[in-house]
Design a protein around this nucleic acid. Structure first.
Length: 343
DNA sequence: TACCCGTGGTT
DNA sequence: TAACCAAGGGT
């Protein structure tokens, strides 16, 4: 099993590898640019390849090197990330780029990479294997699924993680570890899928223990998720002379560090206060519904257009005609569209 | 450990 | 349509 699996998988990968802008051909003697590997891996955390790909193209074109990214204005990087989600990734991306530029390049080992901000067990192993050829064991959700089925590990996640990692280590080859990691992920994404796995096309169907018992679709077993809650809040569209008032959210917490409309302090833990930032003749602008990972938000929109205002605090007037360039996260982009439709 | 942190596609 | 989930990391 330990020798047969990587050989069969790599042979399959040579003919079936997906093409991505951050990838080079399987079996290539060249190694991919560590910067591009790192950038893609961070973008791909909990994110589909289809969603991440255009962001990767934009970032790689605008900031072709880690030095260029490190020297970029932080606001520009955050705005370019808008819509991709999990904004702590962008904050860590900036911190990591600065650290790497400062030390003159990426660390070339899994252990060294693991020390960088935004690189956890998965990403450090992935960059080490793909960019530097280290035989690091890469475990993401795809690998967990493939390994749980291949070795019939039926203990529920997350408890099964230790056993899954141990099994994954046993089949990680010394040769082509980067291709092996990407092959495991391609297999999980295209053949060994969550629902309706295509076992007839699978290069690992022969050694697969779950397949032998017809239990492949039941693995891996997952613990039930916590129930989602509902929250309400209000966002405020303050308009003057074709401009709208935008603020920057605190760096920690929801949508941290992103440009936004002022709001009433809603969060995943509590509803908003409904208190407006300034007194005025507020007009109801409708409601935006937006689903976050663990709660649903019903965001009321209040609109006020005028000439004179009281003190608004920290923020900036932004031309409404160029609102798309503000880099608003999706929730506030929706609210802005609604406000502009109401006007 | 359990929870927080986005988004958009699929069933 | 409500639920699930995708190349996870930080705390």
């Amino acid at each position: 099993m330990e020798d047969r699996v990587p050989a069969a998988l790599l042979e399959w990968y040579d003919g079936h590898a997906r093409a991505f802008p951050w990838r080079i051909a399987p079996g290539s003697a060249e190694r991919p640019d560590p910067y591009r590997v790192w950038l893609s891996e961070v973008m791909l955390q909990q994110t589909t390849t289809a969603h991440a790909a255009p962001y990767f193209e934009k970032f790689a074109a605008r900031w072709p090197t880690v030095k260029a990214l490190a020297d970029a204005p932080e606001e520009a990087v955050m705005a370019e990330w808008a819509g991709l989600g999990y904004y702590s990734r962008a904050r860590n991306l900036i911190a990591c780029a600065k650290a790497v530029a400062e030390r003159g390049g990426f660390p070339e080992t899994e252990e060294g990479l693991r020390q960088l901000p935004g690189l956890g067990a998965y990403t450090a192993a992935a960059v080490a294997a793909i960019a530097f050829g280290e035989a690091a064991t890469v475990v993401d959700a795809n690998v967990e699924r493939v390994v749980a089925r291949l070795f019939l590990i039926d203990e529920p996640l997350p408890g099964a993680r230790k056993a899954i990692r141990a099994a994954a280590e046993d089949i990680t080859p010394r040769e082509r570890p980067g291709d092996f990691a990407q092959a495991m992920m391609d297999l999980g994404a295209t053949i060994c899928t969550t629902r309706a796995p295509k076992c007839l096309l699978c290069p690992l169907s022969a050694p697969c223990l779950a397949r032998a018992q017809g239990r492949q679709s039941d693995l891996p077993v997952k613990a039930r998720k916590k129930e989602r809650t509902g929250r309400t809040g209000t966002a405020f569209w303050i308009e003057r002379n074709g401009q709208v008032w935008l603020v920057r959210r605190p760096s920690k917490g929801m949508l941290g560090g992103m440009r936004a409309l002022p709001d009433d302090g809603w969060s995943s833990r509590k509803d908003g206060s409904e208190n407006a930032p300034i007194p005025g003749a507020w007009k109801a602008g409708g409601v935006v519904r937006h689903g976050f990972t663990h709660f649903d938000l019903e965001l009321g929109l209040a609109i006020y257009a005028g000439e004179k205002f009281g003190a608004l605090g920290e923020g900036e007037w932004w031309p409404i005609a160029r609102i798309e360039e503000a880099g608003l996260p999706t929730l506030f982009a929706k609210a802005a569209l609604l406000a502009m439709a109401v006007e």
